[in-house]
Every structure is written in C-alpha cells, then in structure tokens.
Simulated scan of single mutants.
Amino acid sequence: MKPWIYPLLVVIGAACYGILSTIIKLANNDGFTASEAVTGQYYTGFLLALIIYIFTRRGIPTIRGSFPVLLAGVLTAITGTMYGKSVEYMPASLAVVLLFQFTWIGMLYECVATRRLPKKSEVVSLVFLFGGTILAAGLIDADISGIPWQGWAWGLAAAFSFAAFVMANQKPVAGMDIITRLFLMSFYATIAITFLQSPEIVWNGKLSEGLWLYGAILGVFGIVLPIFLFSVGVPKVGVGMSSILSAAELPVAIIASMLLLGERLTPLQFVGIFLVLFGMTLPAMLQRYSLKTRRRLSKSVS
C-alpha cells in the first residue's frame, strides 16, 4: 500500500471510536446501563470477529508469542469499562475530551520507551490539539462544577489505558496475520469484559429488548473496525504520530453528539474542531515542507 494509506487508516479507526459515547448515551436513554451497552459491544464484536475468522481462515489460531495481542485485548476492555463509567457521570462530549488526553499521554509513552525528546512539530501539534479540545468541548462557557469527581477520574484513567492500548497494538507478532490478530484480541477483550462488566445480558433478556442493536453498532465501530485498522496502521505510523492522528475521534464525537443527541454546537466549538483538525495535519505538513526545502537546497548545491 502507498505510505499515506497507513495514517488514513489510523484516522478512520479513531473516527470509529468517536461515535461510541453517543451510542452509549442513546442506549442509556432507552433504559440500558452503560455497563450493559459496553458488554454488548464486546460480545457482539467478538461474534463478528469469529464469523470473519471462520469464513477467511482455517484451523485453530496459534497463541504462541501472542502476549502483545493479549495485552492489547485486556487494555481495550479496561478502556471500554472506564470510558463507559465516565459517560455515566458527565456529558458525552466532555467524556470524550478526557479520553482525548491520550494524545499527549501516548506521546509521553513513546518518548520514554524510545528515550527521546518530542519533536518540535509534535509539541506544536499538541498545543493546537489541546487548545482545540478546550474549545470543541465547550468548556469555555460551560458549567462543569456539578460534575462528580468520579467522572473526571474514570475519564482520565480511560485516557491512560487507551494510550497503553495504542502502544501495545503496535507490537508485531511473527506469523500472525491481521484477521487472526483481530479474532484473538477480541477474544481476550471479551474474556476480560466478562469479569469487568455485565455478562448477565446473555441470559436476562436484555439483548432481545433492543440491547442487541446497540451492541451490534458498538461492536462494529468499537471492536472490529478500529482494531483491524489500528493493527494495520499503527505499526507503520508509530505510537506518537498515531496518538496525534487519533485526535480525529474528538470532532467525530462532538458532531455525533450534536446530530444524535441534540447537543448544541457553538461557534467556539466549531473553531475548536478546526484547530484539532489543523493540529492533526500539522506534522505531516511540516514534514512535507522540510522535505521540499531539502530538495531545493540539494538542487541548488549541485
């Protein structure tokens, strides 16, 4: 594939995550808890991954050397649990802002792992992302004093967990293709979610009451698509740049909450979304400008 495809896959994967908080809120409005919606997400996601594996692969997948996949699966389950908890305490748009802090957390993880300082372009990009986040979330003119501390704690914990998931997901496993990775990761995540959330939805009738629909939507956009797209894109792009590109999640979340939940989009939020998108593309633009400059200098010297 062409090099620009991999960043695009990361952006699309992040955009898939952007609609999750809104779908969970819709499930809440229909009488289901966030825990039930998240459980339905992982169970349905695993079922879809199993169907894809059966129709495209043969035999039982080997789990030798699959610890990075196990770790990524558990981390995505932990992230989904914490994110669902945060949505219970605060508006969907604010919950996604807290989750959005994984951008600088992921950059921090990579800098520590590779023992390097952030690049100037990355720092400038994060400044735009942070400023855009504040505006896009409507925090300038919003009253957030009544939000319980549990909401803030769960949201930030989800951000640290999601950044760790992105980092774990970049680890390749020799001899394991993307479909097998999707199947195993969703399997491990489902095992973890069984202990963390509400496995009783399988036998208490909630699925037949309409939870299956929310689970199917969440399973596609919260498990199958992002895990597949991240598994392809993140190893090629890197954790730091993937964290920046994943900022696409925020504009999608804001727009989804506006369209589906009726939340108001103010002019400041519109400016914030623009700043987030600009911050996402800034490193690529600077890199392209630097490359053109070096080419012109090399031609002038020769």
Score class of each variant (00 low, 15 high):
residue 165 F to K: 04
residue 33 T to M: 04
residue 201 I to C: 02
residue 144 I to R: 08
residue 7 P to Q: 11
residue 253 A to I: 00
residue 194 T to L: 05
residue 87 V to Y: 07
residue 44 T to M: 15
residue 156 L to A: 04
residue 24 I to L: 13
residue 199 P to F: 00
residue 108 L to I: 11
residue 100 F to T: 07
residue 181 R to W: 02
residue 115 R to M: 05
residue 14 A to S: 13
residue 176 M to T: 07
residue 261 L to Y: 10
residue 110 E to F: 01
residue 280 M to V: 12
residue 135 L to R: 08
residue 53 Y to T: 06
residue 199 P to I: 00
residue 154 W to A: 11
residue 173 V to Y: 08
residue 132 G to M: 13
residue 234 V to H: 01
residue 66 S to T: 11
residue 73 G to K: 12
residue 21 S to Y: 09
residue 53 Y to P: 10
residue 31 G to K: 09
residue 216 A to T: 12
residue 260 L to Y: 06
residue 41 Q to R: 15
residue 234 V to I: 14
residue 136 A to N: 01
residue 143 D to R: 13
residue 182 L to Y: 09
residue 113 A to P: 00
residue 175 G to C: 08
residue 229 L to I: 02
residue 166 V to G: 10
residue 80 G to Y: 04
residue 108 L to K: 04
residue 44 T to C: 15
residue 261 L to N: 11
residue 221 F to T: 12
residue 238 G to F: 08
residue 243 S to N: 07
residue 10 V to H: 08
residue 257 S to Q: 01
residue 256 A to M: 06
residue 117 L to E: 00
residue 161 S to G: 08
residue 160 F to W: 15
residue 20 L to E: 11
residue 129 L to G: 02
residue 184 L to D: 05
residue 205 G to M: 05
residue 301 V to H: 15
residue 227 I to D: 02
residue 22 T to D: 12
residue 289 Y to F: 14
residue 282 L to K: 07
residue 24 I to R: 10
residue 254 I to Q: 05
residue 174 A to T: 14
residue 254 I to F: 01
residue 115 R to Y: 09
residue 49 A to E: 03
residue 73 G to A: 12
residue 87 V to N: 05
residue 6 Y to A: 15
residue 275 L to P: 02
residue 246 S to V: 00
residue 93 S to T: 14
residue 256 A to D: 02
residue 250 L to C: 06
residue 27 A to G: 14
residue 186 S to L: 01
residue 201 I to H: 09
residue 82 M to K: 02
residue 221 F to H: 04
residue 25 K to L: 09
residue 280 M to F: 01
residue 45 G to L: 10
residue 99 L to W: 07
residue 98 L to A: 11
residue 160 F to T: 11
residue 191 I to F: 11
residue 240 G to C: 03
residue 276 V to C: 01
residue 189 A to P: 07
residue 225 L to M: 14
residue 160 F to N: 03
residue 251 P to R: 13
residue 71 L to M: 13
residue 29 N to R: 15
residue 292 K to G: 11
residue 136 A to G: 03
residue 135 L to W: 05
residue 182 L to S: 04
residue 13 G to Y: 09
residue 251 P to Y: 01
residue 111 C to D: 04
residue 236 K to L: 05
residue 207 L to Y: 00
residue 37 A to R: 10
residue 273 I to Y: 04
residue 242 S to A: 14
residue 217 I to S: 09
residue 46 F to N: 13
residue 27 A to I: 05
residue 222 G to K: 06
residue 138 G to M: 06
residue 11 V to G: 08
residue 140 I to C: 12
residue 57 R to I: 00
residue 110 E to C: 01
residue 172 P to L: 12
residue 197 Q to R: 10
residue 261 L to P: 13
residue 202 V to H: 05
residue 66 S to W: 00
residue 86 S to H: 02
residue 100 F to R: 11
residue 67 F to E: 09
residue 222 G to D: 10
residue 96 V to G: 10
residue 121 S to V: 05
residue 175 G to D: 14
residue 26 L to K: 15
residue 116 R to L: 02
residue 255 I to G: 07
residue 105 I to N: 05
residue 191 I to T: 06
residue 248 A to H: 07
residue 267 P to I: 04
residue 249 E to H: 08
residue 83 Y to N: 05
residue 157 A to C: 14
